[in-house]
Nucleic acid binder design. Structure first.
Lengths: 189, 189
DNA sequence: TCACCTTACGACACCAAGTGACAGCTTTGT
DNA sequence: ACAAAGCTGTCACTTGGTGTCGTAAGGTGA
């Protein structure tokens, strides 16, 4: 069974913890919330919290793990003769939202945007999928590593700028449109 | 006196701590070195270490504070009618080295490049000067915030790619040339 | 020179994030 | 039904980081 009861329960518990954590963070702030608070909120020990998440920060980014594979898969599903930049554009346009906030909804986004520790963790997470995307891009289009790095880094630069603008406007900005503008502006050539 | 004896000794002590810290980190690894180890190495208490640096990570980035002002000053010294992208290019080409490693030499660079906690902190530091650079750029060239963010983010994307390539080649790559290539490739238009 | 004030330091106590080890309970596979 | 595997609480421990206090030293003005 690829999906045993144990695994399902575990995922459910993880999700419950994550939800409680984000709620508490949004209410009291990240630093003002202790891991014990979160654990108690879902009826477990501090120790058990760390059996579901490696760090306090990670509770906000629950469910991101699959993202990497999906983005890479999408990247590899694009026509091989397509402009690499265009491939990145199309794929990231689709995954912009989950990549940006890593799955914690609008609350989570605001939270991440306003908490340095979480921003730092987000960057770390990004590095993971960026490496994967870089390798996929390099393999599919025969790019050297520097160029592949350059393109994927630039792509995340666009995502960041869109996220910043979104945060600045209080959540009103059309992020997809901003991403389009960014990709148009930085198109290599 | 803008430069009293107190201030000078303080700077000297800071530098000494930083040096000891980087040395220990390079020798034993970041996680394997405790703050007390560093403090003892320079003959002080853990408590006093934290009177010179807010966090353990920051010991590696000693002397970065001035960088922000200098980069901004350079940015504002560029001709006002110059292409903003070109201004960024010229300025960052000059400051690429200190910005990248934040002043701890080649050892420090390798250290940062290979230690997730330090990479995270570096990104945070970057955000500081990026914000400043963004504001300066926006003010000088009358750009909207999104465009200014986009350009500065892209610029750091280039710096990152160059740093990654540099690390990959074991320190042989000509970073200035890579930066030039990056700026040429992503030139907006 | 003497009194004054600021600064730096050590010492101590404390909190929170993680980690390791152990013991007991429940679930699963056979 | 039974053993292996998984989850949990409990306890002890390390480490990064902070607040407080007492005190010694250095710099400042009369």
């Amino acid at each position: 069974m690829a999906d045993s009861l144990r695994e399902r329960t575990r995922r459910a518990v993880r999700a419950e913890i994550a939800q409680a954590a984000v709620a508490l963070f949004a209410e009291r702030g990240f630093d003002e919330t202790t891991v014990e608070d979160i654990a108690r909120a879902v009826g477990m020990t501090k120790r058990s919290f760390f059996r579901y998440f490696p760090t306090k920060e990670d509770a906000v980014f629950a469910g991101t793990e699959v993202l990497v594979e999906r983005v890479v898969a999408d990247l590899e599903a694009r026509p091989a003769d397509e402009d690499p930049w265009e491939s990145l554009h199309q794929v990231l346009r689709r995954w912009e939202e989950p990549i940006f906030s890593a799955g914690a909804g609008a609350d989570g986004r605001r939270l991440v945007e306003s908490t340095p520790a979480l921003r730092a963790r987000l960057h770390q997470k990004r590095e993971t999928w960026r490496t994967a995307a870089r390798d996929a891009l390099a393999a599919r289009h025969g790019l050297d590593t520097f160029t592949a790095d350059l393109l994927t880094n630039a792509a995340t630069a666009i995502l960041d700028a869109a996220a910043q603008e979104w945060a600045r406007t209080g959540g009103d900005a059309d992020r997809a449109e901003l991403v389009d503008r960014g990709f148009a502006a930085l198109r290599p050539g």
